[in-house]
């Protein structure tokens, strides 16, 4: 097993653009450039109008479903399917929210979702960081084949794996446990996380690692003290991806978890979608409330997410 580079340590270090927010950047590029002209603040009214119109249309397109969610949650059940549809509820009803906060089962689903998603995210990042590093920085026979083999697990239909995983977990007595959910979610998150982090590690110059080796750092020290701190945006992006995967999953959570360990997606369906009718206002209210933690997490971490996801897209 050897490091990718065979360059002598004295070789000149090429300037690297900080495309992924790694913090590794040539000093000559640190000078702040004048910001690009902003169409929204343009002095030409036509340009400004067109820019704002585009923002409003795109924003409306993205936010209309969220508004509809909110409006339905505040609409009395007898008016949900009123014709013609009403953009604003004629009567605002808080009943759906009242019933939401008096249903202890929903809090149990919420707790399960948080536990399972957080552990999935941590486990996925932990494992995929080491795997991604091995794929990015080591050269060995079968490396590429192994990389594509890992990725190929994404090609299987979920339903196919579900039955197999169900049998395996049943045989080991893991059904209706958090372990079953975390392991199954991690099965799906690992390949993409590994590839995402490999792309990120590729942007870290090998010369930096060589320099650390020359200074006497062990390989683990290099990973823990240099590579991982520089890869924080990538780790956050991978973690968020794994978290969302665990948070949104329906069919695995339904099949592998019993009533006590069920997460929000199957829990909400179980509670509000019945044989003969659906409690739309309650379902919308619950969906809105449980989306808030994820939305807040995304908003606060979105700058890492963008940096992490685009890492490796353009090699410096």
């Amino acid at each position: 097993m050897t490091l990718e580079t065979d360059l002598p340590t004295a070789a000149p270090i090429a300037p690297v653009a900080d495309t992924a927010g790694t913090g590794v950047q040539d000093a000559s590029r640190r000078t702040r450039r004048p910001s690009k002209p902003n169409a929204l603040r343009s002095e030409r009214p036509g340009v400004r109008f067109a820019a704002w119109a585009a923002v409003i249309v795109c924003g409306g397109f993205a936010l209309l479903p969220v508004y509809w969610l909110l409006a339905t949650s505040l609409t009395p059940r007898t008016e949900v399917f009123a014709y013609p549809p009403q953009f604003f509820p004629s009567t605002v009803s808080w009943e759906a929210y009242e019933s939401l906060f008096t249903n202890p089962t929903l809090f149990n689903y919420l707790r399960n979702s948080i536990i399972v998603s957080v552990i999935t995210a941590v486990l996925s990042v932990l494992v995929s960081a080491y795997m991604g590093y091995a794929f990015s920085k080591f050269r060995y026979t079968g490396r590429r084949a192994l990389m594509y083999f890992v990725l190929s697990s994404q090609m299987f239909p979920q339903a196919l794996l579900l039955v197999t995983l169900y049998s395996v977990f049943a045989a080991y007595g893991l059904l209706n446990t958090y372990t079953a959910l975390v392991l199954s979610f991690t099965t799906f998150t690992l390949p993409l996380c590994v590839w995402m982090l490999k792309g990120f590690f590729d942007t870290i110059p090998d010369e930096l690692i060589e320099a650390a080796r020359v200074d006497g750092a062990s390989r683990l020290r290099i990973i823990h003290s240099i590579v991982l701190p520089l890869s924080a945006p990538g780790l956050v992006a991978a973690g968020l991806f794994a978290f969302v995967r665990g948070w949104n999953d329906f069919i695995f959570a339904l099949t592998l978890a019993g009533p006590d360990k069920q997460t929000l997606p199957p829990g909400l369906v179980n509670t509000y979608i019945g044989e003969a009718s659906t409690a739309w206002p309650e379902l919308m209210a619950a969906s809105l409330v449980v989306s808030l933690p994820v939305a807040i997490a995304f908003i606060s971490l979105q700058r890492f997410l963008v940096g992490g996801l685009t890492a490796g897209a353009v090699k410096g």
């Binding site: 049943a170 069919i251 009533p259 369906v269 179980n270």
Partner: peptide, 22 residues
């Protein structure tokens, strides 16, 4: 002990559990 699945998923889930002996 109560076991419940949403109506649209119930048949498949019950089949799986009965078949597997759970």
């Amino acid at each position: 002990e109560e076991v419940s699945f949403p109506y649209n998923e119930y048949f498949n889930q019950l089949m799986l559990q009965v078949r597997g002996g759970q």
